[in-house]
Amino acid sequence: MTEDFYCDEVLCGKTQVEKVLETENVLAYHHTKPFYPVHIVAIPKKHISSLITLEGSDDELVLELLGVIRKVAAMVTEEKGACRVITNIGDYQDSKHLHWHIVSGKPLS
C-alpha cells in the first residue's frame, strides 16, 4: 500500500471510485475494498496527514468535512438504521491522509 492512497490514487484519478457526495474540498465515496456491507470513506481533497496534525488554518475545511460526514451518516442511518463514524491515528492509520469511515453492518470476513 502506498503511504497516501488518497492523494496517490484516488484524488489524482488513478483509482476510480463510486462517489457518494462531493464538495469543492471534500470527497466521500464507497471504499474500494470494503470491510463492512456499507463502507464509505470521506476525505479532504487537501493533504492533511491525520486528525492530530490539523492546524488552525484548516478550520473551515474541517467544518466542510464534518458537514459531508454528517450528511453521509444521515443517509446511511436512514437506509440502514445505524452507522459508525471512525477515524484512525498512528499505527492504526494505513494511509497517512486524514480520512473517516462511515460504516454499517457487521464486519465482512
Rank of each mutant, 00 (worst) to 15 (best):
T2F: 09
E3C: 09
E3F: 12
E3K: 12
D4P: 08
D4T: 09
F5K: 00
Y6Q: 05
C7K: 15
D8Q: 09
V10W: 00
L11N: 04
L11E: 01
L11G: 03
G13Y: 06
K14P: 13
T15G: 13
T15A: 15
Q16P: 09
V17W: 02
K19M: 11
E22C: 12
E24D: 15
N25D: 15
A28P: 02
H31A: 09
H31S: 13
K33Y: 12
F35T: 14
F35G: 14
Y36G: 03
P37C: 05
P37F: 05
P37K: 06
V38H: 04
H39Y: 08
H39P: 06
I40G: 01
I43F: 03
K45T: 06
K46D: 02
S49G: 13
S50F: 04
L51R: 00
L51M: 15
L51Q: 06
I52M: 14
T53L: 07
L54V: 10
G56T: 13
S57Q: 15
S57H: 13
S57D: 14
D58K: 00
D58S: 05
E60W: 08
L61S: 07
V62Y: 15
E64A: 13
E64S: 14
L65T: 07
L66M: 15
L66I: 12
G67Q: 09
G67S: 11
I69R: 11
V72Y: 02
V72K: 06
A73L: 09
A74F: 07
M75A: 15
T77P: 00
E78Y: 11
E79Y: 04
G81I: 00
G81N: 05
I86N: 09
T87N: 11
N88A: 08
G90P: 07
G90I: 06
Y92V: 00
Y92R: 08
Y92A: 07
Q93D: 11
S95T: 08
H97C: 01
H97S: 03
H99L: 01
W100C: 01
I102H: 01
V103Y: 03
S104E: 05
S104N: 02
S104I: 00
G105V: 01
G105R: 00
K106P: 00
K106F: 11
P107N: 05
P107I: 04
L108F: 00
L108D: 02
L108E: 02
S109H: 12
